[in-house]
Structure formats: C-alpha cells, structure tokens
Nucleic acid binder design. Structure first.
Length: 365
DNA sequence: CGCTTTTGACCTGCGC
DNA sequence: GCGCAGGTCAAAAGCG
C-alpha cells in the first residue's frame, strides 16, 4: 500500500530516476569519493569535459574583468545594490555575454522549413531557458559567496539527466558546490530549508545532510557535508535555482535594512540578490577568525587541478592558491579586498588560461 | 499545534 | 543478477 503510494509519487515527480552524473570534475583530494562524479561541467558537443565551465557561467572571457572577490565584498548600496530584475548585480563585464547575448552556440537561426522552424524554435527556447538557468545559478552562487566565506568553489555546472527515449531533450539542473570554513554545517543563506535526509558517507566520519527549500514549488536542494580531511570545512552543494524571492526569516530579518529587504523581492531573476545583513557577515567573519588566524585564504576557484591539492592539513596548499594568498578575512579587511580587486586574483594558472583561450577560439570558429 | 529533525526503510543507478 | 552506495520518503519524535 505504502509502496504503491511511493511509486505513484515517484512517477509523478521523480527527477532523479533517470539521472546520471558524468564528467567527474574538480573534487579536491581528500574529500570523500562520494563527492566525485556529481558535478557536471557543461560539455562541448564532442562530449569532452570543458574547462570553460564556471568561467563561462560567469561570462568571463579572455579579457578578465574585475575580481569576483572584489564583487563579493563590495558593499551593496544603492543604486548598485538595486539592479533591475532584468539585470544582474554582477558587473556588466562579467555578465554581458550571458545576459545580453546568447552565450551558447544555440543561438536561434532561421530555418528553411516550417516544421524545422518549429523545432528550432523549441530548441531556441530550451537554449534560452538553459541560459536563464545558468544566469540564475550564477546569481545564486554570487549571492551565496557574498553571504558566506566561500573559500573555494570546486564544482559548478549541471547535473545531467539521462535523456528519455522518446524525449531526448537534455534536462539539466544547475548545480554548484563550494567549500566554506564554518563551525556550523548548515549555513544561513537567507532561505529556509527543511532537512529531509541524512546519510553516512563512505570513507568519511561525517554524515551528509540533505535539505530542500521549504517554499512550495521550489525544488531547490542542497547537500551539506563536512570534509573528512578538514573537519572545519563544510562542503555545500546547491542544486537548482530558487523560483521565488528570499523569504525574510526571523534570523535574517534582524537588522535588515529596508533596501536590503526589498532587494530580493524584485522578481524571480533577482531572487538571489539579497544582501546579508552586515552584522551577520561580521559575525560570521568573527566566527571564522579561529580558523584563519594562522592562515590566510582566498576564495578561489579550483578549476581543474584536484591533484595539486594534496596536503591533508589544508586544501589551500594548492600552489596556485598559495600564490594568491593575500587576503585575511576579518571584519576590518573588506576594504583590503577591494584594494586587490582584480580578477586575476582568482583566474586559473597561465597554462589553464591558455587552454581556456584556445577553447574559446575554437568556439568562435 | 505546526514545523523541523531524526532515522530506518526503500528505491535507483552503477560496477562487477 | 547481485551488492553497494547515494538519494529519498515518511512516520515518529522533538521543539518552540
């Protein structure tokens, strides 16, 4: 009986049943193997894993714009803090490719026949939806980065769902993962989450928790687990994009300024652009001090080189990251971030940049 | 009382 | 086909 009910439910809303994960990417060494393979980077048509993934999502081309870090720590004050729903809080230099123009090769083209035109139209719509998803995911990521001390993003992309036989259309869930240093597993990102499961993770003493956005019709999920290698590091994986403004939770509303409170209410597209109350950021930074007093870390994107992160004591022994260690997150250091606000602070090493340029050239051709 | 968390059972996909 | 691991469900317990 109950089994039947479950099956009915699953048939009705089973987005996982036909899912699969491909293209193992960017999982730092030392993390549980269970993390591997869950982060899909967008692949090119040849099916090879693309190193463009996250950079592309951010619309970062070869002319590297302002530092993401700079953005994250830029006070969200009007008018900059109140972008219209149609635009992004991310500077134009980082978003114009995605927002204003079709960023994918799926750009609409004129077809020769009416039926083909209809198909192409559908494909274009699908491509546009994907672009919008990317944009949403990007905003969500940016907002989360600004709300928390994100130390390293090591996986951004999509979970790829197995195509159904009759409907080969590829369905993708925007997904990104990042590490934060925190004593608490479940970081307050302004949204309300309900825990729906917890599982022991193989090769890790720490369980993985599963959360779902409590808002009806919002299917955003997130997984939270603690690194077995560095217990102070929390790995959070978001899946999907919120389809609603950020609810004003009791915790989040304390001290929230009116402009901040209205910030997230500007429609679905800007739903993630809710500035964290300043006191809360400070609080988090103060909480983080014990972790940072002996090491300086920079939120960086660990694009490809999981093997370079080998020291078990800290994921920030990556040579690339070491090179970029310049910032000490502290309540008084936000201005310091800005002083070094160049995107080169976080771009990939020269070799990787070269590869990225080559891939971009390939795409243009 | 309503919401959240806990937790064991169940389902699914994948590798062998 | 089987076993394993990840992911989800839902009843029960906990909490404010």
């Amino acid at each position: 009986m109950e089994k039947n009910k479950r099956e009915e439910k699953r048939e009705g809303s089973n987005s996982m049943a036909n899912s699969t994960f491909s293209d193992q990417v960017m999982v730092p060494a030392g993390f549980s193997t269970s993390l591997s393979g869950i982060y899909d980077m967008p692949c090119d048509e040849k099916g090879s894993s693309s190193s463009l993934g996250f950079m592309d999502m951010l619309g970062i081309g070869q002319d590297f714009g302002p530092s993401l870090f700079d953005l994250l720590h830029t006070p969200l004050t009007p008018p900059q803090a109140l972008p219209s729903p149609a635009t992004s809080a991310v500077p134009e230099s980082m978003t114009s490719e995605v927002v204003n123009t079709p960023a994918t090769p799926n750009s609409c083209s004129i077809s020769s026949s009416s039926t083909e035109a209809a198909n192409e139209e559908n494909q274009c719509k699908a491509a546009e939806e994907e672009d919008q998803d990317q944009e949403k995911a990007k905003k969500q990521f940016m907002q989360y980065c600004s709300n928390n001390e994100v130390l390293s993003c090591f996986g951004v992309g999509y979970r790829q769902l197995k195509p159904k036989k009759k409907n080969p259309k590829r369905q993708r869930e925007p997904r990104f993962a990042f590490m934060t240093k925190s004593e608490v597993d479940h970081l307050d990102d302004g949204y309300r989450w309900r825990k729906y499961g917890q599982k022991a993770v193989k090769n890790s003493p720490f369980p993985r928790s599963y959360y779902r956005c409590t808002t009806a019709a919002c299917g955003v999920k997130k997984r939270v687990e603690r690194s077995s290698d560095d217990p102070s590091t929390v790995v959070t994986t978001y899946e999907g994009t919120h389809t609603h403004p950020c609810p004003v939770t009791p915790r989040g509303s304390i001290g929230m300024q009116p402009e901040a409170a209205s910030f997230g209410g500007g429609g679905g597209g800007a739903s993630f652009l809710i500035p964290q109350p300043h006191y809360q950021v400070q609080q988090q930074q103060q909480q983080l001090q014990p972790y940072f007093h002996n090491q300086t870390v920079v939120p960086s994107f660990d694009f490809n080189s999981t093997t370079t992160i080998t020291n078990s004591s800290s994921p920030y022994t990556n040579p690339f990251l070491q090179q970029e260690r310049r910032f000490v997150p502290s309540p008084s250091s936000s201005t310091l971030f800005r002083d070094h606000g160049l995107l080169q602070d976080m771009v990939a090493p020269p070799q990787m940049r070269k590869e990225m340029k080559e891939e971009q050239l390939d795409q243009k051709v």
